[in-house]
Amino acid sequence: MIEVRNLSKSYGPVQAVRSISFQVNQGEVVGFLGPNGAGKTTTMKVMTGYLPPNEGTVFVDGMDIRENTLEVRQQIGYLPESTPLYSDMVTYDYLEFVAAMRGVQKDDRADRIAEMTHACGLQEVLSKRVDTLSKGFRQRVGLAQAMIHNPPILILDEPTSGLDPNQIVEIRELIRTIGKERTVVLSTHILPEVQASCDRVIIIDNGVLVADGTPEELQTNLSAGEHVSVTLMDDEEDVAGVLGAWDMAEVVEHGTSSNGEAYFNLNSTSDIRADLFRLAVNNGWTLTGLSRRHENLEDVFRQLTGG
């Protein structure tokens, strides 16, 4: 559906994107991840035909964006970062304007707007001026204008930034509904968002692609092993002595918490909870807590992007 091939883009001397390649298949929801300034927005601006690439190109449905710009643009619905809208227009007029500019036939416009109003929950703001809308509604209007011409591809640049937690959940749900029948590429730096709404994750850092796979794949392939936390009602120094000499795990951190219990954070290559329990029994320790934590996407992200 979309193929980004050896894409490079620089702003004067600043190289924003360096030879990135990836593919997005039909019907996928792909999360585009990276720290601020990694090149997410630049890549998206090239994909939507706003910026011309310096090197490489983007194919949409086999069409080269450099040659068939207008045809490619027609396939794409785009929500730029921070949701720019014509604030002096009434919501309905704005949607009608975008529909007309997108080539929706005059007779179909009212139907399309009605459909988008329903899908994005815009009933109550249809006759209000855009500049009077809350951030959440602006975001919905932005999504509605991106989908007004029923494009097979949606490109959303940080669709949930600046929203409150309730609005974030609403927009995420909206995106999940939209994503059922469309190909969606969305950028974010909020990690739970990717786990909540994406089939696949592409991580870029400093203009370079550093990871590409499902959230699960990234966690398993890139995690550095198991993390086990244990708390005991024993003297910290005694336990530390034994655990320090234990060859199955490595003590990363230890201390005594305010309620007098000693805690230890351990790293290991496999699940050592059973062994640890037996070790505690053999040494006569009183175990009060034992938990394992997988390396999550956040750890992977921090590890890959040097956070």
Partner: peptide, 14 residues
């Protein structure tokens, strides 16, 4: 200033 130029220039027009 408002960023709408990006919307305008990604529409299927020259």
């Amino acid at each position: 200033r408002a960023g709408t130029l990006e919307l305008l220039l990604t529409l299927p027009i020259r």
